[in-house]
Amino acid sequence: MFRKRPYLLTALLLLIALLLSIALGAVFIPPGTILRILADLIPGVALDPDWPESFSAIILSVRLPHTVLIALTGAALASSGAAYQGLFRNPLADPYLIGVAAGAGLGAVIAMSLNWPTNLFGFYLIPVGAFIGAVATVLLVYNLARVNGLVPLTTLILAGVAVGAFASAVTSSLMLRTDLQIHRAISFLLGGSPMTGWDPVLAALPYMLIGMGLLSLSGHMLNVLQFGEEEAKQMGLAVDRAKVFVIVTASLTTAVAVAFSGVIGFVGLIVPHIIRLLWGPDYRRLIPLSILGGSTMLLLADMLARILLAPSTLPVGIVTAMAGAPFFLWILRRAKKEVFW
C-alpha cells in the first residue's frame, strides 16, 4: 500500500525521524511528552505541565533547532543532488562529488572570516558567500566535464574531484593565516557538524524555502532534458533558461546547507537513487520526495552520530561518508553497464 503512496510513506517516516531526533540525547524525552510540550506552545492551548521544566528548555533551545537544521540540510542536499543528476544526466552527480560543496565551503569560510556572525544579519551573509562559491564551481566543473554536449561519468567525476580538491586546498591554505576567525570557520566546515541554536535555522529558512520550492517546480524541465539538449529544444523547452534556472536554484540550496552544516557528503547521492529505484525517474516527484527522504535520512545519520560514541558526538558528516562511500562504489559498479542515465 505504501509503494503506491510515496508521499504518505516518506512523510510518515520523516515524522517518526523528527520525533526520535528530539527524543534522543543525554536524557530521553518520551515522544508523548514532546508532543504535549509542543502543543503547549500553540496559543490558546493550555496544558497542565506534568513534565520537568528542564524538558521544555532542552527541547526548545537545543534539540528542536538542531533537529530542524539537520532536517533542512538533508532535504537541501538530497533535492539539489537530484537536480544536479538531472542537469548532468548522470546518476552520480552529488553536491559533494562534483565539488560544489567544496566551492560553497570556500565561499562560506571567506564570508565568515570577513565577518564572524555575531547577530542574525551576520548569519544571513554566510550563504551569500557560499552561493557565489557554489555557482562558480558548478559552472567550472560543467564546462570542464562537457564532451560533445554530454557530461560523461568519467570527466564529471574527475573534473569534480579536481575542482573540489582545489577549492579545499585554498580553504586549507587559509589555515596558515593566524586569524582566529578563519580557524573557527574551517574547523566548523570540515567538521561536518551543524551549527547550534536558532540563529542559523532562522537564517537558513528563507533561502531553503525559496531554493527547494523552485527546485520542486523544475521537474518537468529536468524530465525533458533527459533526452538531450537538442531534442529538448525541439520539444519546445527553452533549454538555456531551464539550465540556468536549475543551476542557480540547486547551487543556492546546496550553499545554504554547507554554510550552516559544513560539508556533508553522499546524502545527495543516496536518497535520490533509492527514490528512483522505488518510484521511477519522474523528476516532478523525484525532487519533492527527495526533500522528504533527505531530511529523514540525515536525521537518522545524525542520531547514529549522537549514539555511536555517546556521550561524545561524532560529526554527522563522518557517518554519511562511512555509509555513503560503499553505496557510491555499488552504484559505480552498476553504472558501468549504463554510463548515461
Partner: peptide, 19 residues
C-alpha cells in the same frame, strides 16, 4: 520513463512551466 511519459514530453510546448 514509461512510453506514456515519454510521449507526453512531446506536449512540452503546450504545458505550463510546471509541466
Amino acid at each position: 520513463y514509461s512510453v506514456e511519459q515519454a510521449v507526453m514530453m512531446g506536449r512540452t510546448a503546450y504545458m505550463s512551466w510546471l509541466g
